[in-house]
């Protein structure tokens, strides 16, 4: 009886699931799939996923795919969003059906290759951060009082990564450059991961998520870091706060003349530590419009050279990884 019931359920789901490439673990070391997965996201969006590990190869594959889509001018595509592992396509199925769209995109997928040869124009943006600040501590305390108790967020991240103390957490956060792999979530938000794997730290997310996070919070979730551009809900562990803006719809500061957001996919971010006095001083300058953002001019970023660097630090990265309690498990 049980068997019959289960198989008929499987039949119902089978009919409802849109046919797509089922999940198979991406191949090491970068986790790219043999073939991209074409996942429907409702009747208006299609998600094309290239791999299951956060790194520059998968991100570049998504970037290259997105550029090819833009060139192809497939009718019915209204917008594309390129992210760290996947590209989301917003389409009008009165113009192009899911089936037709997937067929056209699979043709494009075949054309993208030679990711290792890509050279990208990239800026370095330096962001001042006050670590373990009173505002994010207050936000965590508020969550503890109203939702459920959480530990001091810096402590949580220190323990989760078996770091020694706050000083080491700051060192691991401020030493490497971070690659901006995604923009979005909220306007101006940049998701970045460290380019140097020796400094990879991870953190579990809030469950359930917070209803509010201070603007400028530096958050860590999985291997990802963000600066919350606005006071907003959120799920990442809060380890510090920046007084600078990631989003400015008024575009008063020269750094926002070209765009309402500070960063772009393919930029690099380095965080640097400041004191509370410096925080308040910069905050005042940002408010007055006199603050000058620390942004480099465009430099060429060679994927090939970067892969050589990864090879050079491979042994050291492996040793670092051994210290991390999360490394043994199967983690995103």
């Amino acid at each position: 009886m049980e068997g019959t019931r289960l198989s008929s359920q499987a039949g119902v789901l089978e009919r409802l699931r849109t046919p797509y490439v089922s999940y198979k673990r991406g191949k090491p070391p970068f986790g790219e799939y043999e073939e991209a997965r074409y996942l429907p996201s409702g009747d208006r969006y299609l998600l094309v996923e290239f791999g299951d590990r956060l790194n520059i190869i998968i991100n570049c594959k998504a970037l290259a795919f997105d550029q090819e889509i833009k060139k192809s001018k497939i009718p019915g595509i209204l917008e594309t969003c390129v992210g760290q592992l996947a590209v989301l396509i917003y389409y009008d199925d009165f113009i192009v059906s899911f089936g037709e769209l997937v067929a056209r995109l699979k043709e494009i997928e075949k054309r993208i290759s030679m990711i290792e040869q890509m050279v990208l124009a990239s800026r370095l943006i330096e962001i001042p951060v006050l670590f373990h600040d009173r505002w994010t501590i207050e936000a965590a305390n508020d969550y503890s009082a109203k939702m459920k108790p959480v530990d001091d967020n810096c402590d949580t991240v220190i323990k989760y990564n078996a770091l020694k103390d706050l000083k080491e957490l700051i060192e691991y956060t401020t030493t490497p450059q971070h690659w901006v792999a995604n923009m979005g979530w909220m306007p101006g938000n940049a998701n970045a991961f460290p380019l140097d794997p020796r400094y990879e730290i991870r953190a579990p997310k809030y469950n359930p998520s917070r209803t509010w996070t201070p603007q400028g919070t530096l958050g860590v979730g999985t291997a990802d870091k963000v600066i919350y551009p606005l006071r907003s809900p959120g799920g990442y562990q809060m380890i510090g706060r920046t007084p600078v803006k990631m989003y400015d719809p008024e575009q008063r500061n020269p750094s926002f003349k070209r765009s309402i957001q500070l960063a772009m996919v393919g930029d690099r971010i380095r965080f640097y530590p400041i004191t509370e006095e410096e925080y308040l001083e910069i905050e005042k300058e940002v408010h007055e419009g006199s603050y000058r953002y620390r942004i480099s001019s465009y430099e060429l970023f060679s994927v090939k050279k970067y892969l050589e660097f990864l090879e050079d630090v491979k042994e050291e990265s492996r040793r670092e990884l051994e210290r991390r309690p999360w490394a043994g498990g199967h983690h995103v």
Binding site: G83, L85, S209, V332
Partner: peptide, 22 residues
């Protein structure tokens, strides 16, 4: 793959109307 909780995944863009489980 998931993170510390089965609902935690790597960031992806999502469409309007998603039923997201946090």
């Amino acid at each position: 793959p998931s993170g510390a909780h089965p609902s935690n995944i790597n960031l992806v863009y999502c469409g309007l109307g998603i039923v997201g489980v946090a």
